[in-house]
Amino acid sequence: MALVVNVLDLRAQYEKTGKGAFCRRHSTKRVYTHSMDIIDGILEELGIAESARLVYVSLLQHGETTARLLAERTGITRPSVYDQIKLLKKHNLVVERDIDGKTFFGAGDVRQVSHILGDHIERLEIGKNLLDKNLSELVAQTHAVQPKIRFFEGKEGVQQMLKDMLWYEDITVSMCWPFTHMLSVLGKDYLEEFSKRRVRDHIALRTIWAHGERDKKENSFTEVDTLVERRYAQAGQAFRMSYSIYDDKVVFISSAKEAYGFVVQSKEFAELMLMQFELLWNNSKK
């Protein structure tokens, strides 16, 4: 059975150990049809070169062998095979044995991959906590230019844009959200994973749905989600584009037909859009 995993970040994937696996950096979804693909994807996330991954996966699949046979199986030159083995041995992923004067190489305990992954995530967490702790001071000391408007194209671009919201905690987001159109452009798997992380970070939503979506059974923001307050626009108030307001940002997402989005970062603009949202909110039905 194919294994489908949505990628929001490294930690979220690690928390799903046993249920999912990592995706390649350039995509938001990867379909795994073999356990070796899972190993390959994890090692890629850990920065292990492709040639080294080929060697390790070959050893896992076929058992211990010589460098000559590894070169034949992987298509890598023999000198390069030795280089990859040297790298893998640093991670305790390959063991070496001498049998009758011949050197054989084999894959180490595959559970070592999990240990390496755990160490990597722990280091990332430490780095993130250190950065968060000093972020205000770093912002004050640097002269980075923050663009006021950023554009994103395509499904993956729009998904990446919406993830910005998940950097926040304990906030309330005001949204005009035509659910059917957003489901089409963002995808069900992405929205479900997004919703889980949003709830984890205590991000509440005030959403206005289109009038005709009141009876939708398919819903990523479920009724048991107490962090969502929903109202429905008046009849005749149809819209296909969404916008979300939080902090000093307003995020716009088009329908799948045009598949683009943009973020406006401006306190004044966010205040103006929030004022308009309140008018719609008060005029919408529960």
Rank of each mutant, 00 (worst) to 15 (best):
M1W: 06
L3I: 11
V5L: 00
N6K: 02
N6G: 08
L8M: 07
T17S: 02
G18K: 04
A21F: 08
A21W: 06
R24H: 05
R25A: 02
S27Y: 04
T28G: 05
K29A: 00
K29G: 02
R30G: 02
V31M: 00
T33W: 01
H34F: 04
D37E: 10
D40A: 01
L43I: 04
L46A: 00
G47Y: 04
R53D: 00
L54Q: 04
L54A: 00
Y56C: 03
V57C: 05
S58I: 04
L59K: 00
L60M: 12
T65P: 12
T66S: 07
L69A: 00
L70N: 03
R73F: 08
I76Q: 01
T77M: 09
R78S: 06
P79G: 01
S80F: 07
S80H: 08
Y82M: 05
I85P: 01
H91N: 05
H91E: 05
L93T: 00
V94C: 01
V95N: 02
G106D: 02
G106P: 10
V110R: 05
Q112K: 07
V113T: 02
G118N: 11
E122L: 10
E125M: 11
I126H: 11
D132R: 12
D132Y: 15
N134W: 14
L135C: 12
L135P: 15
L138W: 15
V139M: 12
V139A: 07
Q141N: 12
H143L: 11
V145T: 10
E156S: 11
E156K: 06
M161E: 02
D164Y: 10
D164H: 09
Y168E: 08
Y168F: 13
D170M: 02
V173G: 01
C176V: 13
W177G: 04
M182F: 12
M182E: 09
L183A: 08
L186M: 15
G187R: 06
Y190M: 09
E192L: 15
E193V: 14
K196T: 09
R197I: 10
R198W: 07
R198P: 14
V199R: 10
R200M: 10
A204K: 10
D215K: 09
D215V: 09
E218K: 09
F221K: 03
T222W: 08
E223F: 08
T226I: 09
E229C: 04
R231N: 05
G236Q: 07
R240V: 13
R240H: 13
S244L: 12
S244A: 10
D248I: 14
V250Y: 04
V250G: 03
V251R: 03
F252A: 01
I253W: 07
A256G: 12
G261D: 10
V264W: 07
Q265V: 13
K267T: 11
E271A: 10
M273P: 11
M275G: 09
Q276D: 15
E278R: 12
L280D: 10
N282I: 12
N283T: 15
N283H: 14
K286D: 09
